[in-house]
């Protein structure tokens, strides 16, 4: 069973062809790491997979729930972290506490979101993904701003997700601990 399939996908942004003929299939337990220079279309590929962009050509087919972590935090700034994450966890039917535990954020549960540092924000956005229970994780630059402990949390969360039959599509220009992942260079 494939969770995400792309066939001959082309992406045009701002009148510029970023890539074409992109074929990709992601099954349970698999991971794909998209690499490339700034502006190569890594984020666009993630947004195509999330259904936020329409492909200029080809087909994107997703058969599973997806969870997206990108540059936008999408958490209410004034709320304590646990309640801000709780809003999405309730929509997803997930558990915000489990997500925060996975990303080492439990001690920050009562801190308002606007007080968090860059790395803590990144962890929070990954905690939402970890809490969602979605089969397919779409991670755009997940290691940006993370310290080494955060990177370890991320690697452990991804490993647990894949062991449970989930799949990961990650775009990163930094080294990412994804054992056995296929690489796509844009």
């Amino acid at each position: 069973m494939t969770l995400l399939r792309m066939e001959g996908v082309a992406c045009i942004r701002g009148g510029r062809l970023l890539f074409e003929g992109m074929d990709l299939a992601l099954g349970p337990g698999e991971a794909v790491l998209v690499s490339g220079q700034n502006g190569a279309g890594k984020s666009s590929l993630i947004r195509l997979a999330a259904g936020l962009l329409r492909p200029a050509a080809g087909q994107v087919e997703r058969t599973a729930d997806a969870a997206l972590a990108d540059e936008a935090l999408a958490l209410d700034q004034r709320l304590p972290l646990v309640r801000a994450l709780g809003f999405w966890a309730r929509l997803d039917g997930g558990d915000a506490g489990a997500g925060m535990a996975a990303m080492g954020l439990v001690h920050l549960a009562d801190v308002p979101v606007h007080m968090l540092s860059t790395g803590q924000r990144k962890r929070a956005s990954l905690a939402r993904v970890a809490a969602s229970g979605a089969k397919l994780w779409l991670l755009d630059e997940p290691a940006n701003g993370l310290d080494s402990e955060g990177a370890e949390c991320l690697a452990a969360a991804i490993a647990a997700h894949r062991a449970a039959g989930g799949a990961v599509l990650a775009a990163s220009h930094q080294p990412l601990s994804l054992p056995g992942a296929r690489e796509i260079a844009l």
Binding site: L68, L73, L75
Partner: peptide
């Protein structure tokens, strides 16, 4: 829109 809430809802 700016904070990505609309995108997150669309993904769901």
């Amino acid at each position: 829109r700016a904070s990505g809430v609309l995108d997150q809802l669309a993904v769901r």
